[in-house]
Design a protein around this nucleic acid. Structure first.
Ligand SMILES: [Mn+2]
Ligand SMILES: [Mn+2]
Ligand SMILES: [Mn+2]
Ligand SMILES: [Mn+2]
Lengths: 220, 220
DNA sequence: TAAATTAGTTAGGCTAATCTAACAATATAT
DNA sequence: ATATATTGTTAGATTAGCCTAACTAATTTA
């Protein structure tokens, strides 16, 4: 049985490994920063997780999930995303509110609960932010995600996920009436400040920052 | 903000106060036994709860909830019963499975979640065991509950709640096809062993123990 | 390559929640 | 009323998860 805290470390490691692909390991400071603790605290916990066979880690070395650690991390992620979907679909939460509560719900221990929840939600494949939901075997759809910033001017694309899940960004998207599935057309990239002119679902053009364009995943 | 453990103490105290009416206080050992900890542990926690103004308690004296403590306890109970209802109604849990998971879910902190959940469940008044669900103001229906053992032979009554919520009892009820709302008729009480002959929903008579009859709440 | 910077560890301490063992107060029985 | 049993408290220890301060290793820069 894993503690609440141990679970959070595994999930954090999974997240940190899977962003920057080709860099499946993490550092102590990186982990600590992500989890909002001090590096000394992370060192302690990493030793414990190593003892339990959940991470591979040598003093001053890089941190990697073991197969078991990964499996456990994915189980938490599965619960997190299923709960987010529940809150969004069934309880009318907005997509900037779900994460906070799912952070708590993901730690509820009951195999039956998660499987019944999945069934109740009709086996969703993606959470409200467009992230894939692992199935009960830990498998999830692999989707080719392109950043909006990588789309050529003139081209059209469809929003499939958010990279940044902060309230500020999600609320801004809401205001712009951009959601998962919205079709965007890149008009042009302004050379001066690298801001981007986009057309949202066929309406009149709008200017957004490059930071914005770096925070949205789309497919062509 | 209350800790997970503090919440459990308040809920326990609420439970212990409300069973034996005319005895709204509890003892240290009683609390400890109920919570599965040692009396020394309970003493420590009670001092802390007193510090926080949640219980009134003097060394070697009886333990009582303050108004604030009671209010907090009721909020936990509300969540517990709403979650039980959710699991039972929406996720097909059986009534002997819901309690365990609700013990975890009751500690999730989100006012919005509990209120939306209540709405989603269509403002249920009773949980799967027939216990009243406090509303958002902390009020709950007062129901006159009679033990099956107090019903006179010859009389008919309707099951409204279970007093014992153990798996063993609930599964036995299931087997007997007794649920909330089932109509029972007392045929006779056997003098020899005080066992009770009952008719379940009009079917042929059956014999149950006095312990059984002491574990079911009915109304006439 | 030597110095400076960044990353990571260790030692020692704190708090919440638990325990055991010894003790003290209260209640019960003879 | 005294002895006994029950109930509750205290002292001291443990564990998990966190911290700060001081240190060490690894990496980057000049
Ligand atoms: Mn999330
Ligand atoms: Mn979490
Ligand atoms: Mn229950
Ligand atoms: Mn509980």
């Amino acid at each position: 049985m894993l503690s609440y805290t141990e679970e959070n470390y595994l999930k954090a490691l999974l997240k940190l490994s899977s962003q920057n692909q080709e860099k499946p390991e993490a550092g102590t400071n990186e982990m600590a920063a992500y989890l909002g603790v001090k590096p000394a605290t992370a060192t302690d916990m990493l030793k414990k997780l190593k003892e339990k066979g959940l991470v591979s880690y040598e003093k001053y070395g890089k941190i990697l999930l073991t197969a078991i650690g990964r499996q456990n991390g994915i189980a938490i992620l599965r619960k997190h995303r299923l709960w987010e979907t529940f809150l969004y679909e069934k309880l009318d939460f907005s997509w900037d509110e779900v994460h906070e509560v799912a952070e708590q719900l993901e730690h509820i221990q009951s195999a039956k609960l998660v499987n019944k929840l999945e069934e109740f939600l009709d086996f969703p494949e993606f959470d409200p932010h467009g992230d894939p939901i692992p199935n009960s075997k830990g498998e999830m759809p692999v989707v080719i995600k392109t950043l909006l910033s990588e789309i050529e001017p003139g081209a059209t694309c469809r929003v499939i996920a958010v990279k940044d899940t902060s309230k500020a960004f999600l609320q801004y998207l809401e205001k712009l009436q951009i959601t998962i599935g919205t079709v965007l057309k890149i008009i042009e990239v302004i050379n001066f400040d690298r801001s981007v002119n986009i057309q949202i679902a066929g309406s009149e053009a709008r200017n957004v920052s490059m930071k914005f364009a770096d925070s949205l995943f789309v497919c062509r």
